[in-house]
Write a protein that binds this DNA or RNA. Structure first.
Lengths: 331, 331
DNA sequence: CGCGTTTACGTCGTTCGTAACGATA
DNA sequence: TATCGTTACGAACGACGTAAACGCG
């Protein structure tokens, strides 16, 4: 049994039992994989895959167990290499981030630009997804880190670090009758409006719905999306009152959209950086965290990952405060 | 990086940085290890060990981290091999059991004899230790399974399976004045006696001490030991009243020792089989569990380990019941 | 006949053990 | 001088890629 054999094994499995395709993934030849697989099976003394004629038709139950273990082994081998790369200051690598559209579009850009400036050799892969899918991807180990927002407690998978807090804004097109409201906006003002908001607001447990429910209102959504840009577009098109993250309301939006409230209407949200405890954090990944939320210290992050730190994080600042600081820094 | 390199690395570390000694452990030559270590360091790009002249003087912090990961990798590699050995019905291997003296001396013998009969090629290593050391050894991965007793809940490390329940007995030499007691033994009868019992009874949290404390008695121990045989010896020598596990009171002991009580005086104990969730259980290990406690099913054990089972175990029988069943079976 | 796997074979790199050398206490 | 680690070298092994054969739809 060698690391190479295990690597080939999972490659074959992940390629859907197509050895030729797997060979491309691992930059090797097809007969090479074929032979190594056979050798591994010979050594273990049983079939990892069921054969139908010459081609692989299915994985055996035992094979599945071996692959599970092999994944752990390969992950730890990667960890050792990552450890080494960090130590020798190797600034080359990849960074896969699972997050929501809003974070990817309005929070991450400046941080990633700064990251690429400092680490030109790092390739960043963004995976904008729905909330549930983010953690799914993350748990399957297909992302190095996740950025996710909650109203209350931290996500229960992995190590969660609070980055910043934010609030929802309520937005209408210029000229909308709510734009001329004389008193501060209340939830009751929205009782008869149709709303345009995030897809996640449709879920009964969403904090938005619960806030409305507490006020005795059942909100109507004329249009929902994961994409804050789309939400703004449909607000402009007159489909209703927009409710979305304050990060997504830009200076340009102020030209034709009117921010009519948000402050205390809905519970505040926290955006968390979620890391896998079983994965070594590359230096540039820690740097990204610091670029997003400068109150964090890379070394605290690394220490928390190995469990040396009490893992207690201070209440994070509001996004607007971070935004201001970053603007100052840039000037 | 290869599995061999990682194996050599931890071997060197475990041999106290003595490469020659490590080479013997892994059945290889010293120059071989030396070279592989160098190659690994070259590939990773940093020193795993600090050198003083030519010899290794200390492990670097980075080296320590690598070794941690390497241990995981090697453990999983072993798991894969164990999986394979189980599947192909390979009945050769080792079994290291961390347990108390009482279990090793009075509970395990018949089970291990039966095991060796069924699996002659399995080498059993018993590690009789104190309670705290048992779990220490187990957590360090130096034992395949632990047998440990508690009065209440299961140990919190690993997967615990209740094997049987037992009670303490109170024993005096023939002719002792307590042997002639007219009424059933009460704790108060022991108030002015010196006791001979387990070392663990000295701890303030021990269930024995707490039972005495509840009766307003502070017990005096004239002699303590982990070894029930020693306890009996000193009871015979007249050092005091013996209190120990009923498993340790044999038919032969009844010749010169008098069992004067125990039934309800002290809380009952449960003996647990503790398994590591991250370790594949060899077939013969599961068989041993079944030999000790026939109410268990090997397959339930295996399933519980992979987390498929609700992991709820029935209240185990008393040791005396098991003992009786086994006697019947043997006849 | 295309697709995918296996078998055959030659090359190259690597591991391993033996033996000699070097450093240290 | 004894102990321990490194270097040198030759033999054996193993991995890899190319090319050809085989099975299946």
């Amino acid at each position: 049994m060698t690391l190479i054999q295990l690597r080939y094994l999972v490659a074959i499995f992940d390629a859907g039992l197509n050895i030729t395709q797997a060979a491309e993934h691992v930059h090797a030849t097809q007969p090479g994989l074929s032979k190594q697989l056979k050798q591994l099976e010979d050594e273990l003394g049983f079939q990892l895959f069921a054969r139908k004629g010459k081609s692989l038709s299915a994985i055996t139950p035992a094979g599945r167990q071996v692959i599970e273990r092999a994944r752990i082994i390969l992950a730890e081998a990667r960890n050792i290499r990552a450890l080494a790369a960090n130590l020798r200051g190797d600034d080359k690598g990849e960074l896969t981030i699972a997050t929501t559209h809003t974070q990817a579009r309005f929070v991450l850009p400046h941080a990633i630009v700064a990251l690429k400036q400092r680490y030109p050799e790092v390739d960043v892969h963004l995976k904008p997804l729905g909330d549930a899918q983010i953690m799914g991807l993350f748990e399957r180990g297909q992302a190095d880190l996740a950025l996710i927002s909650t109203t209350g407690a931290a996500p229960d998978e992995g190590l969660s670090v609070p980055l910043f807090r934010w609030r929802r804004v309520v937005v209408v097109p210029n000229g909308h009758r709510l734009a001329a409201l004389q008193h501060p906006l209340a939830l009751s003002d929205l009782a008869n409006e149709t709303l345009v908001s995030y897809e996640s607001s449709l879920r009964a447990e969403s904090s938005l719905r619960r806030a409305f429910a507490a006020a005795g209102i059942v909100p109507r959504f004329s249009c929902t999306s994961r994409d804050a840009d789309l939400i703004k577009t449909y607000v402009r098109a007159g489909l209703g009152v927009g409710v979305f993250a304050d990060m997504a309301f830009t200076a340009e939006d102020a030209n034709d959209l009117r921010l009519i409230g948000g402050g205390g209407l809905f519970p505040e949200c926290t955006t968390w950086l979620v890391l896998r405890r079983d994965r070594v954090l590359r230096g540039y990944a820690a740097a990204l965290a610091e670029l997003i939320a400068p109150q964090l210290d890379q070394r605290d992050l690394q220490r928390a990952l190995v469990g040396e730190e009490p893992e207690h994080w201070p209440q994070p600042p509001y996004w607007s405060e971070l935004q201001a600081k970053i603007a100052v820094k840039r000037a």
